[in-house]
Simulated assay, not measured.
Amino acid sequence: MPIHLIWGDDYEACNREIEEIIQTVIDPSWKSFNYSQIDGNDQKQNFRGLEEVQSAPLGSGGRVVLVRRSPFCNGCSIELANKLEQAIKLIPNNTYLILNNSNKPDKRLKTTKLIEKSIQSNSFSKEKSFLLPLPWDINGQRNLVKNILYKLNLKMNHEAIDLIVESIGNDSSLINTELQKLSLLSEAVNGKSNTNKPQEISKELVTKIIQNNSTNALEIANLLLQGKKIIALNKIQSLLKNGEPALRLIITLTGQSRGWLWVHLLDAQGNQDVKEIAKLAGIANPKRIFVIRKQIQGKSLKVLLELMQKLLKIEASIKSGANPIDSFKDNLLTDSKILTNN
C-alpha cells in the first residue's frame, strides 16, 4: 500500500516528482485503466478516490490514484477521515496513492499521523517537500538552480548560476525551461556527449541566451520608470507577438521593480554597505546596486510603489488566465492610489 505525500509551493518540482512516479509505476498500455486524478476540493471525488485506491490494477504494471489539493493532511470532514482509515488498510501493494497539496501537512491531525505512520511502515512510500526560496534568499535560489541542473544531468560554474538567478529568480518552471533550451543549444554547438557525465553549460552560452532574453524586458522596465507607458506597451505587444512568454516578461519586470524599491528604501535609511544592500534586496551581484542607484535617481518612493503595485496586479491577472496584453494595458494605463507618507 504505497503512499506518496508530496507538498510545497514549487509546483514544477512537485509535478516532476509525480510524473516520475506515474512513469515508473504504470504500464503506458494500461494507463487509461490504471490512472485516476482526483480534485481534493470536491468531497464526492475524494470518496471516489478512496474507493478506487482499494482496487488492484488491470493488466500489467501498477495503479496510481493522484489527489490534487489533497485535504487529508490539511483538514477534512470526520466522514472522510473515517473512510481514509478504512481504505488505507485495503490498498493493494501495486496500487499507489499520491497526495499532493501546496500547504505543509498539519501534524496535529489524526489523518496526518495515520498517513505518516503508513509511510514509515512501507519502504515504497515517501514524503517529499518542494519549497520555493523567497525572492531575497539568493543562496536558496542558487540551490534551486543546482537541483534542477542535477535533475537534467547538467552542470555550470557559480558565475553562470548567478546569471540565471539574476535573470529568472525563483521561478522553478522557467528555470527548468531555460536550462533545457541551453542543453539543446550546447549539444548543437558542441555535439552530444556519449558518456553519462553531466553536460557542462558554459557561462558564455548562459550570458548569450539568458541575458539577451531579458534585455528587452529591462529596456521596457526603464521606459515604465520614466513614465513612457505607450512606448513600453508597444514593445510589450511586439515581444508577446514574437513568442516571448508573458510570465517570463512580467517576472523580469517585477524583479527589476523590486530591486529599485529595495535600494531606494535602504538608501533612505542611510545604509551605504553595497554588499549588505544587495543581500537584503535579493540581488546576486552587488555591482548592480550602483546601476540601480543611477536608474532611480530623482524618483520618489510613491512612483516606485505605484509601479510595483501595477506589475504585481498584472502578474496575478496573467496567472489567473487573463489575456496578457489586456492585463498590461488595463493596469499600466490606470492610475493607482498609493498611501505613503513621502
Score class of each variant (00 low, 15 high):
104 K>T: 14
105 P>M: 03
109 L>A: 07
110 K>W: 10
110 K>N: 12
111 T>H: 00
112 T>E: 05
112 T>Q: 04
112 T>K: 08
112 T>D: 07
113 K>D: 08
114 L>V: 03
115 I>S: 04
115 I>M: 00
116 E>Y: 14
116 E>W: 13
116 E>T: 10
117 K>F: 02
117 K>M: 05
117 K>R: 13
117 K>A: 13
118 S>F: 04
118 S>M: 00
121 S>M: 09
121 S>F: 01
122 N>E: 04
123 S>R: 11
123 S>H: 11
123 S>F: 12
123 S>M: 01
124 F>S: 13
124 F>T: 08
125 S>E: 06
125 S>M: 04
125 S>P: 08
127 E>Y: 09
127 E>T: 07
128 K>N: 12
128 K>P: 03
129 S>E: 13
130 F>K: 02
130 F>P: 04
131 L>P: 02
132 L>Y: 00
132 L>K: 11
132 L>G: 01
132 L>S: 09
134 L>M: 08
135 P>Q: 03
135 P>C: 10
136 W>L: 01
136 W>Y: 15
136 W>H: 12
137 D>M: 06
137 D>R: 08
138 I>F: 06
138 I>T: 12
139 N>T: 03
139 N>G: 02
140 G>S: 12
140 G>P: 00
140 G>W: 00
141 Q>W: 08
141 Q>M: 13
142 R>G: 00
143 N>Q: 09
143 N>H: 05
144 L>V: 05
144 L>Y: 05
146 K>N: 12
147 N>I: 10
148 I>A: 07
148 I>N: 06
149 L>H: 01
149 L>I: 07
150 Y>S: 11
150 Y>F: 09
151 K>V: 02
151 K>M: 05
151 K>E: 14
152 L>H: 15
153 N>T: 03
153 N>V: 07
154 L>I: 07
154 L>P: 00
154 L>K: 01
155 K>I: 08
155 K>H: 14
156 M>G: 04
156 M>V: 11
157 N>V: 04
157 N>E: 12
158 H>T: 14
159 E>A: 05
159 E>P: 06
159 E>F: 13
160 A>N: 06
160 A>W: 01
160 A>M: 06
161 I>P: 00
161 I>V: 15
162 D>Q: 06
162 D>G: 03
162 D>T: 03
163 L>E: 14
163 L>K: 08
164 I>Y: 05
164 I>W: 06
164 I>C: 12
165 V>H: 01
166 E>W: 02
166 E>M: 04
167 S>Q: 10
167 S>R: 02
169 G>Q: 07
169 G>M: 13
170 N>F: 01
171 D>N: 15
171 D>C: 06
172 S>C: 05
172 S>Q: 02
172 S>D: 05
173 S>K: 15
174 L>C: 11
174 L>W: 12
175 I>Q: 00
175 I>C: 06
176 N>D: 15
178 E>T: 11
178 E>I: 11
179 L>Y: 09
179 L>D: 01
179 L>I: 10
181 K>P: 02
183 S>L: 10
184 L>K: 15
185 L>T: 10
186 S>R: 02
187 E>V: 08
189 V>H: 00
189 V>T: 07
189 V>Q: 13
190 N>T: 01
191 G>D: 00
191 G>A: 02
193 S>A: 11
194 N>A: 13
194 N>L: 15
195 T>P: 09
195 T>E: 11
